[in-house]
Design a protein around this nucleic acid. Sequence first.
DNA 1: ACCTATTTGTCCGTATGTATG
DNA 2: CCATACATACGGACAAATAGG
Lengths: 115, 115
Amino acid sequence: MLLRVDPSSPQPLYEQLAAGLRGAIAKRELRPGDRLPPARKLADGLDVNVHTVLRAFAVLRDEGLLEVRRGRGSVVTTQAPRMARLTELAQRLVRESRRAGLVEREILSLVEALL
Amino acid sequence: MLLRVDPSSPQPLYEQLAAGLRGAIAKRELRPGDRLPPARKLADGLDVNVHTVLRAFAVLRDEGLLEVRRGRGSVVTTQAPRMARLTELAQRLVRESRRAGLVEREILSLVEALL
DNA sequence: ACCTATTTGTCCGTATGTATG
DNA sequence: CCATACATACGGACAAATAGG
C-alpha cells in the first residue's frame, strides 16, 4: 500500500496517515470492501505507535470512509453503510441546529446555500 | 460543578464525562463564555486520567459546545461560533453526499425527511 | 523583546477489556 | 476456549500556543 509518514513534519502523524489512506481510497488503490492490515502491523511497518494508527482509523471512520470493527479489522466502506452514515450526519445537523434554536426553514436554507 | 463518573459502568468514562458536561451546559449551569477547569485539575478531582478528560473535551468540541485551545483552556461556546460550526456540518453533509453520488434533490430530501 | 508559567496537543508505551470468528 | 483486533484507560514525555510579568 506504500504509506509513509514524516515525524519531522509539523502535521500530526495521525493526520498524515489519515491523509495517505484517504488518498489511496480516492485513487481507488483501496477499493470498497478491501480490508486494511491490522493496526499493529501497520504501526510496526511505519514505525509509529498503534494509537497513532488507530486514531487515523477513527478519523476515516468518522468521515465514513472506513468501517472499523473490533475483532474483525477495518474495511473500506461500501455504498450501503455510506448511505446510513449520511443519514446519521443529516440527523446530527438537524439535531444540533434545533438545539441552537433554528427553525425548519432555517435548517434547510443552511444546506441549500451550499448547493 | 459537581461531576462524577462511575468506573464500573459499561459506559466509557469519557462518555460519562461528556454527558455530564453536556447536561450542565443544557441546564445552563455552565453558560456560554464560562471557562472550564484545566483538564488536569478536572482529572485529579475525578480521579481519572488526563487523557480521559481531554477526550471528553474533544467530543464536546466536535459537537460545537466547547472551544478548546492550547494555552487558553476550554470555554463554553457562544452563539457565533456555534453557527459557524453548523455551517461546517452542513458543508460536510453536502460534500460527502456528493462524493457518494447524490444529486441536489436527494441531499435535500435527506434533511427534509428528518424535519 | 524576553522569559516563565499555564494549558492543551501529540505521541509513545503498557495493560486490560470486549467483540468477532 | 482460543486467537485476533479494535476500544478504553492509565502513565509519562515533550511540543506548541497563550498570557502575563
